[in-house]
């Protein structure tokens, strides 16, 4: 095999990684619409869902172009099964209580911000453009979920307990964010992808400061769950996809 197709395949995989995490988290948040803890919060959380699914469309559309044939954003979103999904394990975790929703969001948002910030310098100008467009929204996501982590952590005894429990539960999914997949490794040298290992320190420092303000404790080193970027997911993703893909699977070839 020549080098060029390999690079394109790596790029395709990388775009799936970026798009799938946005999509699955957006899908999770969409389920909360109409059920939020307060009306204003319902509206705000739905905004985040809208942003993430909108960004997923950019990434997946680009991926579909690389794939060629009849691929488009919808065939990629609705006709791939779980092992072909490349999202982080973190984002497929259930919404749980609002503490869990917010902690999941905060872990992701801060990571997402640093990734996009680096990708604005990607040598792939298309990636750089999408990153530049998306980061404006994600900056707001970071502020919002961070504010809530502080409020919940330093709110009542109950909110503190619930939020700390969410942190302890979800921490095992954070390690994966800073481990490059094979596709990423193939793209780092040419400056297409960001080396996520370099994002760990700024992410961790941000979390440390935030958690201190929130009177929450960051867990120490522990074994991490990984596999999402390689298509080895937790049990949850299958259900997410079964629901999301229902119509496209039940009526193959129909236009909607």
């Amino acid at each position: 095999m020549t080098e060029a197709p390999n690079m394109d395949n790596a790029r395709y995989e990388y775009l799936l990684q970026l798009g799938d995490s946005d999509l699955i988290l957006g899908q999770r948040l969409a389920a909360l619409c109409g059920h939020g803890p307060a009306l204003e919060e319902d509206i705000a959380m739905t905004n985040v869902a809208l942003d993430l699914i909108g960004q997923a469309r950019f990434w997946l559309s680009y991926a579909a172009e690389l794939k060629g044939e009849d691929a488009d954003e919808d065939t990629l979103a609705f006709l791939r099964d779980a092992p072909a999904y490349r999202n982080l394990l973190l984002v497929e975790q259930p919404n749980g209580d609002y503490g869990q929703t917010i902690v999941r969001q905060c872990f992701y948002d801060v990571w997402h911000f640093f990734v996009l910030q680096a990708l604005m310098q990607s040598t792939d100008t298309r990636i750089a453009d999408i990153a530049a467009k998306s980061i404006k929204e994600v900056q707001y996501h970071v502020e919002r979920s961070g504010d809530w982590v502080v409020r919940l952590g330093d709110g009542t005894e109950e909110s503190h307990r619930r939020t700390q429990a969410a942190v302890d539960k979800l921490w095992r999914f954070t390690g994966e964010m800073f481990r490059s997949s094979e596709a990423e490794q193939a793209l780092i040298e040419s400056g297409v992808a960001v080396d996520v290992a370099t994002l760990y320190e700024p992410w961790h420092a941000h979390m440390q400061a935030l958690f201190e303000e929130a009177t929450l404790t960051l867990p120490g080193d522990q074994p991490m769950q990984t596999g999402g970027k390689a298509g080895e997911h937790t049990e949850h993703l299958g259900y997410v996809l079964a629901e999301m893909q229902h119509l496209q699977r039940a009526y193959p070839g129909a236009r909607w």
């Binding site: 939020g36 803890p37 307060a38 919060e41 209580d97 409020r151 330093d154 709110g155 009542t156 909110s159």
Partner: peptide, 15 residues
């Protein structure tokens, strides 16, 4: 939604 969100609203007020 109202009952499940009560602790969240209480936390925001307490904070």
């Amino acid at each position: 939604a109202e009952e499940g969100g009560a602790w969240v609203r209480e936390a925001a007020e307490a904070y």
